[in-house]
Write a protein that binds this DNA or RNA. Structure first.
Lengths: 153, 153
DNA sequence: TATTGTTATACTCTATAACTATA
DNA sequence: TATAGTTATAGAGTATAACAATA
């Protein structure tokens, strides 16, 4: 209300690549959180369920996939397990380890949430010509390729 | 190590637009968090400082900019104020309100962090031809335009 | 000894509800 | 009454350090 709103018109127009990425990230993050919440999940819980969609995984493996410390993951898994969305199964050939797997309920919720996020993002991008969407996608894929973020080891 | 790693080659290659955005978001989020942490800040604190870079702002205004509830913001500002990075100044014409402003230390930290994040992202995108970077940037700008996320009201 | 996972502890982040002070 | 912020409270997310059990 003071003179705070008067000046900034310089940086607004010339948005750099990095700043664009950061803003895009905040937008996607918000969509992710909103849709998750609509399904009564936090972003982190939704992300865990989505990862498990590819199949059961051990704690250590999940730790790498989600970039979390062991103990953080223990709590995260505890909370979704308490709600019956995943189950810990003791591994048979290594009795220290366990595999975390989606339950039926968890599987449904994971897919619903994923679909909701996808729909929301597609609708946000509705204005973008298909060519642009494909170009952005392929650019992102190349970007991800560099940092070895392709889920597997 | 079971048969979990054997199958998934179908979804990997055909990455949709929405999934690409989500993966990109996770990557940027990680860069943001890592650089913030290197400057002894959380992502949220860094984001607050960066927003204040444009000038002081009232709590309610920040609440809109950061999409937080009033009380959440109170705590966030408390923590960075306690570290001498921002200061609350009581507004003169409305004695209920206050303006949050960066201190000198906060300003330096904000710029350092922002520069660090920018550098990291640019370096990640080093492999991308300039044309692609510009295309992504312009696509993102159009995307953001739709959702009125241009900082101002 | 090394690895897998959990516990204990401490902080940050977040929201909801109730409150204070000013407009 | 409405608005600007804070306080109280509760729960989620995170990390570090210490631990247990198994390899």
């Amino acid at each position: 209300m003071v003179d705070v709103d008067a000046a900034p018109a310089t940086e607004e127009t010339a948005l750099g690549f990095a700043d664009a990425l950061v803003r895009l990230t905040h937008l996607v993050q918000r969509v992710f959180a909103d849709v998750s919440r609509a399904h009564d999940l936090t972003s982190q819980q939704a992300q865990l369920l989505c990862v498990l969609t590819r199949g059961p995984a051990g704690m250590t493996e999940l730790t790498r996939l989600l970039h979390l410390e062991k103990s953080s993951l223990t709590g995260l898994v505890d909370r979704v397990e308490r709600r019956g969305l995943v189950a810990r199964r003791r591994s048979s050939h290594d009795r220290r380890a366990c595999q975390v797997a989606l339950t039926g309920k968890g599987t449904r919720l994971a897919h619903d949430t994923h679909d909701g996020i996808t729909a929301q993002l597609e609708s946000l991008a509705g204005e973008l010509p298909r060519t642009d969407r494909e170009l952005v996608t392929s650019a992102v894929v190349r970007l991800l390729g560099d940092s070895g973020a392709t889920t597997g080891s």
